[in-house]
Structures are given as C-alpha cells and as structure tokens.
C-alpha cells in the first residue's frame, strides 16, 4: 500500500491578534497534515483556534510564523494576489451560514467560482447544473436560495464548492445551521462526492453526530493540536 499524499501541511504555525499588552496568541506552533482522499475533521471547544487555523489553511489569513504548503504550493512564501488566484483555482468553500447570494438563482450561485475564474455565465451554467444535479437539486436550479430549506441551501453551497473541481474543500461548521436530519443528509451527500480520488476536505465542526463521516479527527485545545487519529481509533465516549 502506497503512502498517502499530503494535500495540506502546516508546520510550527503561530498566529496572534492584537498588539502590545492586548496581544493574544491563539495558535501556538501548530503542526498538522491533511491527506488526499480524506475528510479531516477539526474538533475542539469554542475559542480553541479552529477557525483561525482553517482560515490560515485556506489562505484567507496569514500566519505570523511557520510554513504552510497546500497542494504542493508554499503559501507562506507567496504574494497575496498569487494566494487569491490559488484559492480560486484549487479550493472550494462551504460556510456555516451558506453565504449564498439571495438575489440570484441557485444555478447562478453554484456557478460563482467559475465566474470568479473568468468563465462567462453561459459557459458556467451547464457546469453548475451538473453540480446541482449531483447534490439532488436539479428541480430547484431556477429558484432563489430563500425559496429553499436550510438543508437544500447547504446542498447548493456544496454544489458551489465543487463546481470547479477543487482539490481542497474547506468546510466551516457545515451542519451548524441545520437540524439533525438535514445535517445527516447533507453529510451523506458530501461524503459521497468526496469519494473522488485526490480530493481532501478539512471540516471544522462542533457537531459530534457528523464525526462518523470523517476519515481522521484532529482535536484542538487552547491553540494546539492535542490529538490527531483515524476516526476508527477516536474515543467517542471520552469526547462526548
């Protein structure tokens, strides 16, 4: 069996906010790897630094110190504009509050990453429709987000995250705004779509009910990774 390929690798990542006496270090030398073809879930209490870490891994926030390689690219050494272009090509995003644009249709929302890459709307829409079909929303393509349920909106967000076939998916509390049933449904669909080889997903969550959909779980506390184990070895009872 060949060694897993690293999709994202963080070494000695530190990050502080504020200045002077109000300066607070929220990440204390984080080391973490995420591999291709896996779903890595980041677990931990509020304020432990999960969101800060995921922002750094996504390239939307710059670390104070440390090295960050995503899909082989040294993000820590790249210019902001190059990171922005890198994100547009290689990273898909799923947000807690869906962040769908309410004034455009679901298919147009799903097409947004392709529009950002410079594709025309007419060329992007067939890809968006295909992506929406994959999440079971082919009947709702023309509707606006506010005409859909929360679960359906998050499925539109998944379609949007995957429309440009990114190799890294960043998910921030994807089921936080959903009820248990819809949360499970969304994760079922997400898990199914993640079966594609070479894809890696990093999911920040509080929701223990969705941990079963991960391949590996990293637990954070007070700005440090305290545990990183395959899901099969995770002590669910201890963390409950």
């Amino acid at each position: 069996m060949s060694a897993p390929i690293i999709a994202a690798s963080a070494r000695s990542i530190t990050k502080s906010f504020g200045s002077g006496t109000a300066r607070i270090e929220v990440l204390h030398g984080i080391d973490i790897d995420a591999y291709e073809s896996e779903i890595l879930m980041l677990l931990g209490p509020s304020g432990c630094g999960k969101t800060t870490l995921i922002s750094i891994l996504a390239g939307t926030l710059t670390a104070d110190r440390g090295e960050l390689r995503v899909l082989g690219e040294p993000l820590h050494a790249m210019k902001k504009s190059a990171i922005t272009r890198f994100r547009a090509r290689n990273i898909g995003f799923i947000f807690q509050q869906f962040n769908l644009i309410p004034t455009i249709s679901c298919e147009e929302n799903a097409a947004v990453p392709l529009l950002i890459q410079g594709m025309s709307l007419s060329k992007a829409l067939p890809h968006a429709r295909k992506s929406l079909d994959q999440v079971g929303l082919s009947e709702h393509m023309k509707k606006r987000p506010n005409q859909l349920s929360g679960g359906q909106q998050q499925r539109v967000a998944i379609a949007r995250a995957l429309v440009h076939n990114p190799r890294l998916i960043i998910c921030d509390e994807p089921t936080a705004a959903l009820d248990a049933e819809n949360g499970q449904l969304v994760m079922e669909i997400f898990r199914g779509l993640m079966r594609q080889p070479g894809r890696c997903a990093i999911v920040v969550t509080h929701d223990h009910r969705i941990l079963q959909y991960s391949d590996r779980i990293a637990t954070m506390n007070d700005g440090r990774i305290v545990e990183s184990v395959p899901t099969s070895k995770f002590d669910f009872d201890h963390h409950r």
């Binding site: 996504a58 939307t60 504009s81 922005t84 272009r85 890198f86 994100r87 547009a88 090509r89 990273i91 995003f93 947000f95 509050q97 962040n99 644009i101 947004v112 990453p113 950002i116 890459q117």
Partner: peptide, 14 residues
C-alpha cells in the same frame, strides 16, 4: 452585501 463580497473574496475574487 458585505458578507457576500467577503465570501466572493474567500472564494478567490480579487
């Protein structure tokens, strides 16, 4: 629309 512009920015819009 700031949160939408923020999302677009995160998704790679310059």
């Amino acid at each position: 629309n700031l949160k939408h512009y923020g999302a677009l920015k995160a998704m790679g819009a310059s």
